[in-house]
Design a protein around this nucleic acid. Structure first.
Lengths: 217, 217
DNA sequence: CCTACCGATCGGTAGG
DNA sequence: CCTACCGATCGGTAGG
């Protein structure tokens, strides 16, 4: 076996991250202790500090890894959007036909639901515990989250280019609310899974968007 | 002035609850300290314990008060559902016409958005901090939340009685996800308000429900 | 002299 | 309603 030491090192890191994600999600970041993380990882607390400098850097890696998974889904399903880093606002001009836009949104939702499968703890941590990061780390995570929102807003703009552009981001937030809220009620091992939900959410949102009337803003 | 002492007592309690809701929401329940709550309420920490037995009972009152506000909206907009306590599952037989059902859902959403206005901190606490309650208090809060979900599931069943009943609760969760997620992005003082969102969410969901295909479960 | 760890305990602070 | 504290436990680190 090549590089068994590095492999063992990486395995220990993954064990810590998995245990910490579960503990942070179930008990809350502040209430979960490093002793618990150590115990659940099968390591001593002192050994924990060999792999991570402090508690917060564990939180940062959990959040960043998850949000980067979501960014990867976007890059996969919206390859034409090159300047993801500059996508602060949807650009306005549609880049594809309404039919292609609908298919793109369906694939985006399938990709997200796939990424959420088995990542419920990381997802809850991303939603609830970003406030415990220091300003620099928080900026990194929040910046990545904003790119995800901007990509969804762009995808919705492609579906309904006629809509007031001010509504694209709020609608993206409503859509993300539907799929992100699942971490509170969709439990693994039940009949209904995240992938089951993707076509339902797509039908619901694509069917509903034509009905949205433009309010006076 | 009649009963100035009781009035002052109640005012102090409300000041504490408001300060605590904001601190719990912004800093997290565990990270927020009783000293901070005292300072932000304009009281000493020792005085705090004159009004509330412990930290957790403040949390319980914030969560229960908010979820009861939501139950009140339901009682107001769905008066025909007498046995709210037994509404664990939607009953199946529609109690009103599809048109009336749509109007009912719109009014329900308007009522909820009204209840969410200015209650963002309590809402976040209800979503994130219920896990810190002891089993008895948690049961009270979670039980009330389940009744809210059941009422929405019933309202959706009235709109689409033809749909597989197993989908009513998941669809209710998706709808609640859209409106509950707002506590993370809809900030007070901006152009878009919670009441603005009610008709948009109603259009979106009522427009989308006919498009949802029944999956094989 | 390095790495990968352990048992024990540090300074500081929480709820009460 | 305050100052002054307590038992315990936290995140992080010492020596070996």
């Amino acid at each position: 076996m090549a590089r068994p030491r590095a492999a063992r090192y990486e395995q220990a890191r993954q064990d810590i991250l998995h245990a910490a994600a579960r503990l942070f999600a179930q008990r809350g970041y502040t209430a979960a202790t490093m002793s618990e993380v150590a115990r659940e990882s099968g390591l001593s607390k002192a050994t924990l500090y060999h792999y991570f400098g402090d508690k917060q850097s564990i939180l940062e890696e959990i959040a960043l890894t998850h949000v980067r998974r979501l960014q990867a889904v976007i890059q996969e399903q919206m390859p034409q959007r090159q300047p993801l880093a500059n996508a602060a606002h949807p650009s306005g001009q549609p880049a594809c036909s309404p039919e292609a836009a609908q298919l793109q949104l369906r694939r985006l939702l399938e990709g997200f639901m796939g990424a959420y499968t088995g990542a419920q703890h990381a997802h809850r941590v991303l939603a609830e515990d970003v406030k415990f990061l220091d300003p620099t780390a928080k900026r990194r995570v929040v910046g990545a989250q904003r790119q995800v929102v901007a990509a969804f807003a762009q995808a919705l703009a492609d579906v309904r280019p006629d809509l007031n552009p001010k509504l694209h981001t709020p609608l993206a937030m409503l859509l993300l609310g539907m799929i992100n809220w699942t971490y509170l009620w969709l439990k693994p091992g039940k009949a209904l899974t995240h992938p089951d939900l993707a076509p339902i959410v797509a039908d619901l949102f694509l069917g509903g968007m034509p009905a949205v009337r433009v309010p006076k803003l």
